[in-house]
């Protein structure tokens, strides 16, 4: 299940929903990304996330489909927020259920790496010294390339 929304989410509720009524799941890994109050500059007071509606959902679905092809997964839930957020707010949730922990850990890691490099989201940070668009990180590209070849 994939959701792009401006409203906050509760990781506990989402994980519960993923597992609701199921007893074959042996492991669930639930990652939550948060807004930090420092990034390229210190004193980040807010973050605005823009996306490309339509393409965003398609890109996320493609990433999840690829993860399901690579690992034996029993359920995946991806939520990404858009709009304005404050430090401490949750931005992204990736919850992966599997029979065994290794698949759940790896698939969750994979989905986050691909999400950061392939899904059309853009961050603009609002800081004490002004607003700026966040630049791509080479380390994110490196992380994503781990899963290739």
């Amino acid at each position: 299940m994939i959701r792009v929304q401006s409203a906050p989410f509760d990781a506990g509720t989402e994980q519960q929903a993923l597992l609701d009524g199921r007893t074959e799941v042996g492991a669930v890994v639930c990652f939550t990304g948060l807004v930090r109050d420092f990034n390229e500059r210190p004193e980040v007071s807010a973050l605005t996330l823009e996306h490309y509606p339509g393409m965003t959902e398609a890109a996320l679905q493609e990433i999840v489909t690829e993860a399901e092809a690579r690992w034996p997964l029993q359920g995946v839930r991806v939520i990404h927020r858009v709009g304005r957020m404050a430090p401490g707010d949750p931005i992204v949730l990736v919850a992966v259920a599997s029979a065994h922990r290794r698949a759940a850990f790896e698939a969750c890691d994979f989905i986050m790496d691909y999400l950061k490099t392939r899904a059309p989201f853009w961050k603009k940070e609002h800081s004490a010294s002004g607003d700026y668009w966040v630049a791509e990180r080479e380390s994110d590209q490196r992380d994503a390339s781990r899963w290739e070849g």
Binding site: K116, T117, F121, W122, A135, D140
Partner: peptide
């Protein structure tokens, strides 16, 4: 046709 900078979500 959309043009955009490298993505920075997550």
């Amino acid at each position: 046709v959309a043009f955009f900078p490298p993505v920075t979500g997550g």
